[in-house]
Simulated scan of single mutants.
Amino acid sequence: MTNTKRRRISAALAAGGLLPAALSEAAGDAFAGSAAPAHPVQPQTLSFDPNGWIPNNQRLPVLVYRSAVPLSGGDPAALFEQAFARNGWPPQWRNGIYDFHHFHPATHEVLGFAGGSARLVLGGPAPIGREVRVKAGDVVVLPAGTGHCKLEASADFLVVGAYPPDEDIGISRVGLSAAQLHAMQQVLFPASDPLTGRDGPLAKLWRAA
């Protein structure tokens, strides 16, 4: 990643109140040695049509993994960071989710729910958007362009955000031009499922889309 892109990401995180992932040295050492889940969770898929200024993604569905990460220890967020990093989705922040509709036009995103619970809206406002309840242990993968926002959350709600390497993680709250929409549709296909690697459900479900 270039220094310019690192500065742009840092500025975007600071402006949005998103904190860099606090990876402990022990967590880093565990990346290579942590085993994948013995019984990988098969995700629910959600698809959304364009919704006003929110493009959503007509080719790739949202993936919702329920109770995908067994939580333990005093730092459950580190378990998500370990899994994401191990499978090629470098973790970028720990925080919450914005309470306004937005999307990422230039990257796919994985959200790991490390604490509490929340009501989210995916796909933009109703009637196209859909309310989704999440709780600690769940994981959601959002393809580029997918609208999302938080309706409400418990006081202990904690999210780990991660992205494929070297992508621009900036958000948009306005519609895209034709050229920007074309660029969104060309966002690189991720190399692996963020939980279970190259042979995980993401690869199968997205390649079949």
Rank of each mutant, 00 (worst) to 15 (best):
M1S: 15
T2Y: 02
R6W: 01
R7C: 01
A11R: 15
A12F: 09
G16I: 05
L18Q: 10
P20C: 04
A22M: 01
L23F: 07
A26P: 00
F31E: 03
A32R: 12
A35F: 03
A36Y: 09
A36S: 14
A38Y: 05
V41I: 13
P43G: 05
S47V: 13
P50C: 10
N51Y: 15
G52Y: 14
G52W: 12
P55C: 09
N56C: 11
R59E: 04
L60F: 12
L63G: 03
V69F: 05
A77S: 10
E81P: 00
R86F: 00
G88N: 04
G88Y: 05
P90S: 06
P90H: 07
P91A: 12
W93S: 14
Y98K: 10
F100T: 15
F100A: 15
F100L: 12
V110F: 09
L111W: 07
A114T: 07
A114P: 06
G115E: 02
G116H: 11
R119K: 13
V121S: 14
G123E: 02
G123M: 06
A126M: 15
P127E: 11
G129P: 01
R130M: 14
R130Q: 15
E131S: 02
K135T: 13
G137L: 05
G137A: 06
L142Y: 11
P143R: 13
A144C: 14
A144H: 12
A144D: 11
A144Q: 10
T146E: 11
T146G: 08
H148K: 11
K150L: 15
V159R: 07
V160Q: 08
A162P: 03
D166S: 11
E167Q: 15
I169G: 03
G170P: 04
R173G: 09
L176G: 04
A178N: 00
A178K: 02
Q180F: 00
H182I: 00
H182C: 01
H182Y: 01
S192W: 02
S192N: 08
D193F: 02
L195N: 13
T196I: 03
G200P: 02
A208I: 08
A208F: 05
A209D: 12
A209W: 08
